[in-house]
Design a protein around this nucleic acid. Structure first.
Lengths: 214, 214
DNA sequence: TAGATTGTTAATCGATTAACAATC
DNA sequence: TAGATTGTTAATCGATTAACAATC
């Protein structure tokens, strides 16, 4: 497989390509040139060709790219059809929102357990999965061997929790807390969504624009 | 102001610096060297000095950086103490989660209105703010002049909505939908959080690791 | 064949890192 | 003063863009 050569900056663009190609496909467009795609996506045609070439010549000179073929190929690289066993920690508003993202489309993950420390919501169903008290986490993991954990709780108790999860065989994390999992567990595969950081970046953009005007 | 020189890659690191400095400050640490901070954050000391130097020599040779001073300076650049009038569109789980992020700390924003097309939740209170039906959006904006909108609805109706919002004076967006606001409105300031893209990136990481092992 | 468009290399650009002189 | 650590320039690295030969 040529996949190992793909740099992380290219990988980060793949989901967006995937979405655009899905959209084209749904609109019955079966063929597209790098030039036309560049106009739709706001990238250079050169970059698009460069990116697509990373994972093996899927275009055809004089013709362009076959949309469904390219769509499937990118889906394959992203492993959207795999079903990695996943658990969710934290069933608040964020946890519920995130759970529905996992179910919304083939994402590569299969949510099999939801945990929360709030006893009041134990037993409630979210997308057909019962919320379990966090005390059952360890037994559940031993019985079901999930490999991925989605973290939707505050950073406070994260050290003990991630130590435990790594010990129990969790290899990858979708991390919505500000706790730095990679620093404590360099072997873990972590994709973090730092909402407060994102908001502060927007604050800079919004306010510096104002400064330029004023 | 020297701020205009700061490149976007540096800006994107500022919120994380801010968090780490806040933590140091809360632990009573008033002074830190680039070297010590680099170990805590997993960056090179060189990059830290380079970054901090972008916005004016705040360190002292032979001593290091003054933590509260640097913390305040970065907060100032990010405009965390401003109160940009903000509205939230979409009061589902994601909207509620995101609203609480805005209130959690000084983020630079002040949430003044919440809108949803679901009439069943009109009038419900979220963080002391009533949910209004989306039909009231236009009048509300004319009366209150918000400058920022947080988008927590699916992409379907986004074209009409963003056209309207831009017309009503919204300049910046915290965008959780997959709709491409910048393509349609190049003048808009957009910070997007693409949850599905993030999840697919994790899928790649999780599954390619597996491929390497197997 | 002529026209179109990719694949691929070379050139450019920008970000990160290394090094060390400046200075507290 | 000596030691420590920044500020700042130069070197390196990697990502993006430009260009054009290959080829459908």
């Amino acid at each position: 497989m040529k996949d190992n050569n793909i740099s992380i900056s290219v990988i980060k663009r793949l989901p967006r390509y995937y979405r655009f190609l899905e959209n084209l496909k749904n609109n019955g467009i079966s063929r597209i040139s790098s030039n036309e795609l560049s106009e739709r996506m706001g990238l250079t045609a050169s970059q698009i060709r460069h990116d697509f070439n990373c994972f093996g010549g899927f275009g055809q000179q004089g013709y362009g790219y076959n949309v469904p073929e390219l769509y499937n190929k990118i889906g394959e690289i992203l492993c959207v059809n795999s079903e990695q066993k996943t658990i969710l920690i934290g069933a608040g508003n964020l946890g519920k929102a995130v759970a529905s993202k996992i179910f919304q489309r083939r994402s590569g993950f299969n949510l099999i357990g939801i945990f929360d420390k709030n006893e009041a919501i134990s037993g409630k169903m979210i997308h057909g999965i019962p919320v379990r008290h966090i005390n059952y986490l360890e037994n559940f993991c031993r019985d079901n061997s999930p490999v991925c954990a989605v973290i939707c709780i505050p950073s406070n108790d994260m050290k003990e929790l991630t130590d435990l999860l790594c010990k129990l065989g969790i290899r990858s994390f979708w991390n919505f807390s500000n706790y730095d999992i990679s620093m404590a567990h360099p072997e873990a595969l972590v994709e973090s969504v730092h909402l407060t950081d994102s908001l502060m970046t927007l604050s800079y953009l919004t306010s510096s624009e104002e400064a330029q005007r004023g």
